[in-house]
Every structure is written in C-alpha cells, then in structure tokens.
Design a protein around this nucleic acid. Sequence first.
DNA 1: GACTTCTGCTCCTTGGCCCCC
DNA 2: CGGGGGCCAAGGAGCAGAAGT
Lengths: 342, 342
Amino acid sequence: MTDTPARIGTAPTLHDVAREAGVSLATASRVLNGSTRKVAEAYRERVQTAADRLGYTANVSAQAIARGTSATVALIVADIADPYFGQIASGVAHAAEEAGLIVTVAMTERDPRREVALVRALRGQRPRGIVLAASRDASGDADALTAEIAAVQSTGGRVVTLGSALPGTRVIAYGNEAGAHELGERLAGLGYRSSVVLAGPEGLRTSDDRLAGFTAGFAAGGGSAPRVERGQISRDDGFASMTRLLQEGVDPGTLVFGISDVVAIGALSALRDAGRQPGRDIAVAGFDDIATGRDITPGLTTVRLPLEELGAQALHAAVDPDWTAPAPVDLDVLIRESTPGL
Amino acid sequence: MTDTPARIGTAPTLHDVAREAGVSLATASRVLNGSTRKVAEAYRERVQTAADRLGYTANVSAQAIARGTSATVALIVADIADPYFGQIASGVAHAAEEAGLIVTVAMTERDPRREVALVRALRGQRPRGIVLAASRDASGDADALTAEIAAVQSTGGRVVTLGSALPGTRVIAYGNEAGAHELGERLAGLGYRSSVVLAGPEGLRTSDDRLAGFTAGFAAGGGSAPRVERGQISRDDGFASMTRLLQEGVDPGTLVFGISDVVAIGALSALRDAGRQPGRDIAVAGFDDIATGRDITPGLTTVRLPLEELGAQALHAAVDPDWTAPAPVDLDVLIRESTPGL
DNA sequence: GACTTCTGCTCCTTGGCCCCC
DNA sequence: CGGGGGCCAAGGAGCAGAAGT
C-alpha cells in the first residue's frame, strides 16, 4: 500500500497528497472531504489515487480546529462494566456510528463529584455533545456542574441528561416514578404487604424517584410503608444489603425491591447463598430489565427500560439541531417468577 | 465562575487567558501545561487566576496538532453491551484515567470486516495507541488490516491486541488453548464422555483456539471428539444453537461447552426453556468467568479470565514506551454446579 | 552572567476570494 | 460570463531561539 511512506514518524498530510497529485492544497481538500464545490473528474481521480497510495487519512484534530467543531460526542457513565450502562453505551455508539461521530467514554466510578471533573476534561475536546448517563447526586456540587455545562454549551456543545433533568439541558425522560408506582401497585395486588427497598444513596435522583414511586404505589395497592436499606447501586452492594438484612431477620412473604436490576440480582444471589428460596420464600423485583434478567432463575420481575433505544435517543438529542423532546418512554411492568404472589 | 464569558459561541483561548493575565502566549502556555521551563511564581499565579476566571480549558485538538500526538487511546470491541467487552473496557478506561488519557470506543458489531474500517477511521485521531479487543477472523482482509496497523505505527501509535496475536503488535496473551485444554481434561475427569461445542464462526481465532484446546484436553481425559455447532459468539446465538440442538435430540449426560460464557448462558436458558434441567440433565461449561456467572443458577463452570486486569494491561502496553510482554496470565478452571459430574 | 520572557515559526486543514480559461 | 483551480489567512497551541533585566 504505502510504497512512499512519506517521512517516517509522521502520517502523510494533505500537503503530501497534493504534492503527490500535483494539485493545490485546496483542490486536494475539496476532493477528499466532500466540499460543496466541484472538482473536475480528472483531478478528482489523481487526488484520490495519490491519497490511496500514501494511505492518507485526514487528521481529525486539524479538521476540528479548522472547522471549529469536532466530530466527537462524549459519554459519561458510572461504570461501563455495569450492564445497564453497557446497553446504554451500545445504543449511543451505534447511533453515533450512523451519524459519523466518534464516541469518547469516561467513568465516574460512582463518585458523583468526579462528574464535574470529567465534564471539564471532556470539554477540552470541544465535543459536539456530552451525554450524562451517570445518575446525579442532589448533594453534589451542583453549581460547579452547572458552570461546566454552561461552558460546554457556550462553545456550541449540547448537553444531554438521561433520566434526571438538569437545568438547561436536553433530557431523555423516562418515568422512573410512574414506573415504580405501577410496579408497587401491581405487586401489592399480588398480595404482598410488607417490603424492603434496597435503595441507592440518599439524594441520588434515580433512586429517590423510584423509591418515592414504589412507596406510593405499594401503599395505593394496600401495602405498608417499606423499610429502606441503602448502598451503592451495584450488584455487590445489593448482595451485601440483602445479606445484612437476612442476618437481622426477614419474614417469609416479604417483597424486596432492588432499586435497579443489578441490585436485585445481587439480592437474589445473597438469598440463594443463605439457603433461602428467592421467589417463593422472599420475593424480589428490580428495575431496568437488563439483558441478564432473562437468564437468571427465577425470572426477575422488573420494569422494562429500552436501554439501547434510550442511548440512541440521547445521541440524537446531542447532535440534532432541531431536536424536540420526545414523549417520555412509557415503561412496562414485567411480572416474572421472582414475584409469584402470595 | 465565568463572569467574563469572552465572545459568545467560542471557548476562551490561551490567547484570551494571556491577554487577561497580561503576559505572553508562551508564558501562559508554560504555566498551563507544565513545560520544562520555569515561570516565576508571580506570573504563574496571575495566569492561573485568569484561566480560572475565564473557565479556560485547553483545546485538545489544537494541542494534538501542535504536539503531533493526542492524549487519546482507541478501543475496538465487538459490542460494548456484551459483559465480556464491558469488563475489558472498564479496565482500559480505569487505567487510561490514571494515565490522563481519554478513551474512544468503537464497535465492530461482530463483523470482522468492520475492524479495518474502524482502525482507519480512528487513525485519523492520531491516537497514542489502539487496543484491538474484538476477536479477529482469520479469513478477514488480513492484508488491509496489516497495512492500517503499519500506518498507525508509522505515526508513533502503538497497536495492542488482546488474545490473538497479530504480526508486529504488542499482545496481551492469555492461554486460550491451554485453558480450554485443562477445562476439557477436568471435565472428562468428571466422567463426561460425549460433548458438543457451541463455537464461533470458523476462522475466529479465539474460538478456534479454545475449540482445539478443549478437544485435545477432553480426549486426553478419555472423552470422545466433540460435535461442533457454530454461531456468533453471543448470548442469543448460544440460545439458538442450543435450541436447535435440542430439537435434533441430545442425550442426557452430554456436556455442552459454550465457547464463551455468554454463549453458555444462552444455552442454559435454552435448556431451561425446553424443560430440561441444566446441570443434572445436560452439563454446561463456558469460558471467561464474566461477572454474571456468579448470579445464575446453576453456577457456571468456566475458565477464569481477569478481564478488567487484562484491559488495564492492554492500556499500559499501548502507552508505556518500554513495555515488555508480561508473562501470559494463567487461567484457572472453576468447576461449579453446571457440571456436577456423572 | 544567569534566568526568565517574548517573538516568530510550525502543525494540518478549511474557506473566502481572486483569477484564468 | 461561469465553472473550476490556486493562493493565503485563520484557527489554537507548542517550541526554539533571541532578547530583556
């Protein structure tokens, strides 16, 4: 391919291509990047040939700086290894690919304070948009975050939040509270009366909303106010909370609501490890409907979130100039064997 | 924060900071990016203050073009929603964070031909390194890929492959064949004599190596040559292959080896859906030890791969100038309830 | 004479404008 | 007159060498 590798240690530049083809920089640029202006077929071919021979690839950094905008979108998640974020990221990446954009990923590692630092760092890329998928802590440094977001927007970047709204940003809303409300009501309808919620840290929007919705719904269905245990929203913390709970004693017939599927799945494992029979003995429900939920036993009752779809929507919100907030996705409650009813 | 938002629509530049602080561009640059040359404390402070006041963040594109290298590492996976890749990505992202690098993610969507296109596209970023985590198809356009890789390297970028070696690249090796060999031998030792391997497409290195290792090991332990079913390496294809297999008839006591955990987990679900009892009736084993494996029942027999650790190693290989190939990680066989023995 | 600061050039690409056929 | 090619400045930042105190 590269029989004329240009100078070693340096990628061939547009300059190299132009010289090789015997045309001007401008002409080469017009051929290789679909400008509006036309170039005669003969020239076009010469340039293309030269580019192929040299193995030329446009330097995106240079393009970004010349065009004043980069073909990049940043995605901030809590932990990319968490299937919830993995599926969202997949949706974002897929849609980005179709839009010809490159995705940059950063993780907060569940520390809400890191989010500000990440937005700041990512801002250096002058990304087309930033998707904030990690749930935000209400107690975090909201002012600093707001300032960073404003800074991103002042450079033409769009900020999109998934789930919990943030002033001045585009939001992909999905009814956490309503979904959890229906879940609570349906489960109460199955006969459950006492429940425990394995929630996230107090102040975490997603968790707070789901907790509130569930509590109200469960009560509406005739259940009593749930006991609340807190931990991080992770499989391991779900496991730990459930283990702790079991040591303190949990009555058979109790319903355990994991604030998200990963938490619920951790709880299921804890139950099993303790010799209890998840489903029959103690019921468990989650939220999100991550793919893993199909493969565990008993099947996990949950509220379905079209994660990949949400990711794709977030990407579009980040790049479409004339985006209008779509109707909030409606969530379906999926009753499975982990809550057979009393 | 930004009480002097500079011109609207544009991020503050180094120029703005220098003017605000009343110093030269060079001085401002040296303060804000740790050059080797020193700047008097008084100036340093003035510059820093001005930068903070303006909310200045270096334009990484401009830096990349000026320095000739970007603080970026690209990661190519098959599908970020797949927990296997998710955990690897987590390791990469974590290590990148510590090294002050930004990670760009692209997915091949399991089409090996897309890999070439992605490397080419990502090459435009002039990344410090590219980590190829998606398994390669031997039948793919090896020449084109080799050319792209050479191009990346000629610009000072390092290419790292995970698992399957590729000429001229740094490799994070882990003994697929040896691990599968031991797995096969151990399982034969548990009494299994007939087996089916749910493999990936023929030519896919990871799959081929594991298949070969398993076949040899299973034979060494007294088992007979396995039947081979093929599909993509995904949960859904594992499910589909197993379903097909069951329709054709599978004898109780058969061992099913899913070429990776996701495949094995799909097979487990297919068995369950068909009313068979995974574990007792038909045994199942996987490979990778993804986190999900802990939460399914029966526990999945598998070969442990320290995925996040491998991801971190890959990142280091991509950035450390004087990197030396670490000893290949040794893999542990984990026998769980999905293969109780005959 | 020893530092530190400043000036000027460079990186790679795009886009406006001029000019030629 | 119009289609199409070429020249040149801009865009944000780094680095080497010259100049300042």
